[in-house]
Design a protein around this nucleic acid. Structure first.
Lengths: 108, 108
DNA sequence: AACCTTTATCGTAATATTGCAATATTAAAT
DNA sequence: ATTTAATATTGCAATATTACGATAAAGGTT
């Protein structure tokens, strides 16, 4: 097999899984961190920052974009990428809720 | 290829990616949510809650455990699973920091 | 002991992901 | 119009993941 059974789970479960999966690769985490470091939208130079070939980086950017973690605006012949805050807030809120719920429990 | 080049990235990047990857599957998100819902450590009954066969669930539990997202204590002939708060806090703090950094920027 | 219950592991098939060379696309610059 | 620069797409090989049947392991029950 190998195909994930998405239809058996709730929309929220699938949403969290999709976003988390997009961050489930160090190259994509590194891309996010680079976008943070330069403290601005970045047009170009992402490829030079990573130890990966251009098509590979392009593919990772695509996945981050599909997951809603980054936005890409066409800016002349380059593309301007930046972080999409909203999606990170979805994650933060989700994990905050988990932590709050767990702390109320008293086992283990 | 298909092999991730973990050695080219920082320890933190690999750590976040590993944890995120473990949550990158709806079944594993569902397991976490079930552990939250029952509001206690749970011995058994995880398999019955999921639309997956027992070996598949066991495998998912193993991955969550490897990533440090859950803990498993042997309790007689059953195993008692519960959420490992610390790892979720790592995620929450990481995303909080990202959001704080992004909000300071003014682009896009 | 023999049996049952629970969870783990093995083996394997189907599918997905990763990475890159080659090539295509797009738009600016000459 | 040609060239140059930046990014995307295609195609493919290597590897990883997902799922499950069969089986094993561990501990309780009778």
């Amino acid at each position: 097999m190998g195909a994930t059974k998405t239809d058996h789970f709730t929309d929220q479960q699938n949403q969290i899984a999709t976003i988390a999966k997009a961050l489930g690769h160090p190259a994509r985490v590194a891309i996010i961190e680079h976008l943070l470091k330069v403290n601005a939208c970045i047009c170009g130079d992402i490829v030079n920052e990573l130890p990966l070939a251009q098509p590979t980086v392009s593919q990772h950017l695509k996945e981050l974009k599909n997951a809603g973690l980054i936005k890409g605006n066409i800016e002349g012949n380059a593309i301007c990428y930046c972080i999409d805050e909203k999606t990170f807030e979805v994650l933060k809120n989700y994990f905050s809720k988990i932590i709050t719920t767990v702390t109320k429990q008293n086992c283990c």
